[in-house]
Nucleic acid binder design. Structure first.
Length: 557
RNA sequence: GCGCCUGUAGCUCAGUGGACAGAGCAACGGACUUCUAAUCCGUAGGUCGCAGGUUCGAACCCUGCCAGGCGUACCA
């Protein structure tokens, strides 16, 4: 509808050029938006104001000329007027709105999807927590943002692949092995302590116990090096399995799991280092190998291989991101915790060093989560191994509430997550508010079916029956849904979906509540059919929007 | 010091360069004979951190400052 109207406006400007009533120029930049204030119409454009300077005429005058040149054979517009400093406000013909209702029903689960992504291939990597401990709430936020963003992009016509990068190599894995080995030996009565760098959490003890049950005491007879390696492999595998389970419980799935170790096994890390060395992008200094990231926009050069011969995390990341581009993605997105932001320019630099356009890589930095209980901070210290895991949060507040609340902030804003609030089944909790709409409508449809109304099809009479302002208002809101999804995809901002859902939910609850005026199922068969058609359209959108967020749409509550 | 993010109603937050800046919670006053009150209606609440600039027009863009968070390793 918006596109149709935009076309009419552009044609009007053209025809004003041809008629000579406006001075010919390039088609101006123009916005066509839904005004905040209903009195300003259904759509509003600023085109006359943007043309004012080059035309050297008053915007109101230009607006008038454009309106006079509008040809509208399908009678889309019922009223157009010049307003304020030079806006053109349009009112859409009421029966055009009812066509939206029909589109919702016909497109059903596809309503809201579009092709604005033009099938471009996007890879989105997220969570990617090291397999050295269970997922915590911060990972949970990244998981939901990534998972939902992927769903939104897919709905907008992109081809999306989700990937989890497993850091199963390097020093933190060795530390993990050492920590488990210490606990293992403690279980066998040896007196030794964890060092400060070791992982302190109780889950390390649990892993040592399982290892002991599985392998017996034989690790004590091995050379220490071998025993630590065995502990590391065992622990990383177990922890990764746990992470996968937690993600499944959270409704987050990945198409690919990519391991860091595979980059070493295949020689990819060594190959990129040699390649960059030969091009003098990597150089030696103080016994270490340095990447000239400064030449590619970073603030200083970065170490790739330390003087002790060990590679840094960055080394494998260079090879990893090169690999991503070699897999022919048009766009590569990394979702990281905001505490990694210092890393962005480094990775970006490495991508540019291989000749890829830096705009094809984007890091989304998700701000941290403050966990609260009844408004008071829950103390967490990862080092001491005291933290609330994602699993504990899901178990306590449920997957739907956790996902919805994680999405209810712009990812760039820090998020306060209150465990008590998330559990409350009341006004305070927007999750139930939105889900309740779906349950209520489901119940209406059930009641209607008992009275013989089933599978209502569009009837031309509907546009003459659904004429209350509240009903038109509901339809107008539904018309916006595809735009919301498309914009959410373009700006990569998942929070727009739950905000829209809250708005549609509020409009429905208000409509529903005045049951004397808007009783859906009544003795009037025609009216009942029309209203059932209306509310079931609302249910379709509720169901589609909740599906994007990975939140369930209950039939009853 | 430098870099990234944030600063909007008492609180938590939306807000696409556009017209009178919005919602939820909290506060106050109302609505259950029901297609589910996990709901609705109403009242009140603002120096959009501060100061400049760009623009016909700025919460939004630019510069400076203030405050908070995070980062600033041959750690991950």
């Amino acid at each position: 509808m918006k596109q149709e109207l935009a076309l009419l406006i552009r044609q009007a400007v053209q025809s004003a050029f041809e008629a000579g009533t406006l001075q010919r120029e390039d088609l101006p930049r123009m916005d066509l938006e839904i005004p905040r204030i209903a009195a300003h119409g259904d759509f509003s454009t600023n085109v006359a104001m943007t043309m004012a300077a080059s035309q050297k005429r008053a915007p109101q005058e230009i607006a008038r000329i454009i309106i006079d040149h509008i040809e509208d054979p399908d009678h889309l517009i019922s009223k157009s007027e010049v307003a304020g400093p030079g806006f053109i406000n349009f009112l859409i013909a009421q029966d055009k709105w009812h066509e939206v209702l029909r589109a919702v029903h016909e497109e059903d689960t596809a309503y809201g999807t579009s092709q604005v992504g033009l099938g471009k291939r996007i890879q989105i990597e997220f969570v990617s927590a090291n397999p050295t401990g269970p997922l915590h709430v911060g990972h949970g936020r990244c998981a939901v943002v990534g998972d939902t963003l992927a769903a939104i992009l897919k709905a907008a016509g992109y081809e999306v692949e989700k990937e989890y990068y497993v850091n199963d190599s390097g020093r933190q894995i060795r530390t993990l092995g050492e920590s488990v080995f210490v606990r293992y030996q403690q279980l066998l009565g040896k007196t030794l302590d964890l060092s400060a760098e070791d992982y302190q959490g109780n889950y390390i003890k649990d892993l040592a116990r399982i290892l002991l049950d599985q392998e017996g005491e034989r690790l004590l007879d091995m050379p220490e090096e071998e025993a630590v390696t065995l502990c590391a492999r065992f622990a990383a595998m177990k922890i990764l399995a746990g992470i996968r389970e937690d993600l499944v419980a959270f409704g987050v799935s990945f198409g690919h799991w990519f391991t860091e170790q595979s980059l070493y096994d295949s020689g990819a890390v060594e190959a990129v280092i040699q390649d960059l060395k030969s091009r003098d992008i990597i150089y030696e200094h103080d016994g270490a190998l340095w990447f000239r990231t400064k030449d590619f926009g970073d603030e200083k050069d970065r170490v790739v291989v330390r003087a002790n011969g060990l590679t840094t995390y960055f080394a494998s990341d260079i090879a990893y991101h090169k690999d991503k581009f070699e897999r022919n993605f048009d766009q590569v997105i990394d979702i990281w915790g905001a505490d990694h932001h210092g890393y962005v320019s480094r990775v970006s630099a490495s991508i540019r060093a291989f000749g890829y356009d830096k705009d094809r890589f984007q890091a989304l930095l998700v701000q941290l989560v403050n966990l609260l209980r009844d408004g008071k901070p829950v103390t967490m210290s990862t080092r001491a191994g005291e933290f609330v895991t994602l699993r504990e949060v899901i178990d306590e507040v449920g997957r739907d509430a956790a996902r919805f609340l994680f999405l209810l902030r712009h990812y760039e804003s820090p998020l306060d997550f209150d465990l008590e609030l998330a559990k409350k089944q009341s006004n305070d909790n927007p999750v139930y508010y939105v889900q309740y709409v779906h349950a209520r409508i489901s119940n209406i449809l059930k009641k209607a079916e008992e009275r013989g109304y089933k599978d209502i099809d569009w009837h031309d009479d509907f546009s003459g029956i659904l004429t209350l302002p509240e009903e038109i208002q509901l339809i107008k809101l539904m018309a916006r849904y595809p735009d919301v999804v498309a914009m959410s995809a373009r700006l990569m901002e998942p929070h727009r979906i739950p905000f829209y859902m809250k708005e549609l939910a509020a409009a429905f609850h208000a409509y529903y509540h005045d049951r004397n005026k808007h009783k859906v199922v009544s003795d009037d068969a025609k009216l009942s059919a029309a209203r059932l058609y209306l509310v079931s359209a609302v249910r379709i959108i509720m169901s589609n929007g909740l599906a994007l967020m990975g939140v369930s749409a209950p039939e009853r509550m």
